[in-house]
């Protein structure tokens, strides 16, 4: 008989203990795989330039300095890009959620005439994308190139998210709506007073999916923006990583003169350090936000897939 061991209130036999221990080790390894690269980048962002240049920074800063961070924050467009990303994400998410709900609601009603055709149009455009050139031409002809609208309106509705809401709406009990209608409520009142309050889980999940979509959008934001002051954080970050090295080589006074005296840019500011600092700074908003919203993310996209 297997030897019983005592845990906090629950006895575990040896095999259970082994499995539990193995799971802990495995999870720890996975956690380290996820966190060590982040730690490496964060360490480089605040390490001395000579240590960064010689590749001797691993998971702990060496030669602590904040000059690179200062440079990113005050000498580049970091704050402007952050502001743009926050505006696009907040306004875009609000618009998208409103548009998705108001689209999903009628489509969830079997009595809505032309429901199948309209649904088919959404499915078709979900499967077939017209391509970036026609999309660009539409944005350009609307006269919204280089504006926040160009980064929001083309993504005002993501069909997949809309269908998640629609499926959820279809699962709500019809009797509740009917009783409201008997009391004299119209469509708008039913939607805002009855349906939406009953659908907060799916709306929270879809809101999060939209927010992530807007926050991470790089390609279209890059294509539809012309002014440097309109770059979002992702575009800014990508450009900084790609162009930072050559920029520094041209700008730098080398950090040293023949006599070993520092001139111009600090030797602490290196291309690798700039990349690491920009990446570290840019993930801070997400890192701060994530603990607050992760439970919605875990509920995930399965929430609307099963009718209740």
């Amino acid at each position: 008989m297997a030897k019983k061991v005592k845990s906090k209130g629950i006895a575990m036999d040896a095999s259970e203990k082994f499995v539990t221990g193995f799971a802990y080790v495995l999870m720890t390894i996975f956690a380290l795989i996820a966190i060590l690269p982040c730690l490496h980048v964060a360490s480089k962002s605040i390490s001395g330039g000579t240590y960064v240049a010689s590749g001797s920074v691993w998971f702990w800063p060496r030669g602590f300095q904040l000059e690179t961070m200062e440079y990113i924050l005050f000498e580049t467009q970091f704050f402007q890009a952050l502001k743009n990303s926050l505006i696009v994400t907040s306004v875009g998410t609000l618009i998208s959620v409103i548009v998705s709900i108001t689209t999903a609601y009628p489509l969830s009603k079997p009595s809505f005439k032309g429901r199948k055709v309209v649904t088919l149009l959404y499915v078709f455009s979900m499967v077939f994308f017209g391509g970036i050139v026609p999309a660009y031409m539409v944005v350009q002809m609307l006269g919204i190139l280089d504006t926040y609208a160009a980064m929001i309106l083309p993504f005002a509705i993501v069909q997949f998210n809309m269908f998640i809401i629609k499926n959820y709406f279809e699962g709500l009990p019809e009797t509740v709506e009917e009783s409201a209608r008997i009391d004299g409520a119209g469509d708008f009142t039913v939607l805002t007073r009855i349906v939406i309050p009953m659908s907060t889980p799916v709306i929270a999940t879809v809101t999060l999916l939209y927010a992530i979509n807007y926050w991470n959008n790089y390609f279209h934001a890059m294509m539809y923006v012309q002014s440097t002051s309109m770059k979002t954080l992702q575009v800014y970050l990508y450009d900084l990583i790609n162009s930072g090295s050559s920029f520094l080589e041209n700008l730098a006074s080398g950090g040293y003169t023949g006599e070993g005296v520092h001139t111009g840019l600090s030797v602490n500011i290196t291309a690798e350090g700039i990349t690491a600092s920009a990446v570290t700074l840019s993930i801070i908003p997400i890192v701060l936000l994530y603990p607050l919203v992760q439970r919605f993310l875990i509920k995930g996209i399965t929430i609307g897939s099963v009718k209740g």
Partner: peptide, 18 residues
């Protein structure tokens, strides 16, 4: 480009001069 950061880092780390 090697002279911009790699050489100064070598100097700092190993006491090498021009």
């Amino acid at each position: 480009a090697l002279g911009d950061y790699a050489v100064p880092a070598l100097m700092e780390n190993h006491g090498v001069t021009w």
